[in-house]
Design a binder for these strands. Structure first.
Lengths: 105, 105
DNA sequence: CCGTATACTTCGTGATACGATGTATAGCGT
DNA sequence: ACGCTATACATCGTATCACGAAGTATACGG
């Protein structure tokens, strides 16, 4: 997918990936893969950003010798998803404009 | 609209605004206003970019003492719009993922 | 013991939307 | 005559952000 199109979707995708069950970086990438691909550097940047924005909380846990940082969505994170749904109406209106064919064609 | 969401839409919006009839900067902004807002600095950057990418051609014309630069969409520009339509299927799939509610909720 | 998967981190770069600022003309009201 | 608004295009600097590259470290199968 075009990198510019992704920009508006990635944050919300990550929130959605964690929404129903706490998750961690590596798993998020795998879960999102069928829908949208993102690299590790991209994801960890996003996680940091969402954490700073208090849309996520983190807890570290050891899992089979490896560190895992589990992320949980906060109320602010859920709110962000709801706002996205609202904004989507505008997006659809823009899309309709773009695909609108002139009657003369 | 969120600036990140706009990123994937603006280029195609500008192309769509010109598609059926040659247009110029100031008019494009007004025509797009009901759907998506963009500043002059943003638009002229986009027009330059699309011109460089050969998706637009320009011709200057004088109109009541003022300069106007009329833009016309090229075949490459039309192709870009078609590609956008194709990409949109992916976007919709991502959107469905984001709004999907867990059954337990 | 070597390759692959797991797991997180940091750095630098390129793309790009925007505000601020500037230039210039036309037209309208007072 | 003067000021204000609309029209019209241009440039500069800044902040945001996705990504590739590179690094660190452990577990496990062959």
């Amino acid at each position: 997918m075009d990198i510019q199109l992704k920009r508006g979707l990635l944050d919300v995708c990550v929130l959605a990936a964690i929404k129903n069950e706490d998750s961690y970086g590596y798993k998020i990438i795998k879960d999102l893969k069928p829908y949208i691909e993102l690299s590790e550097s991209t994801l960890y940047t996003i996680l940091k950003r969402l954490e700073t924005a208090k849309m996520l909380t983190v807890r570290s846990a050891e899992h089979e010798g490896r560190l895992r940082k589990y992320y949980r969505v906060t109320q602010a994170g859920l709110k962000r998803i709801e706002e996205f749904k609202t904004e989507w109406k505008e997006v659809i209106s823009v899309y309709q404009f773009v695909i609108k064919e002139d009657l003369h064609e």
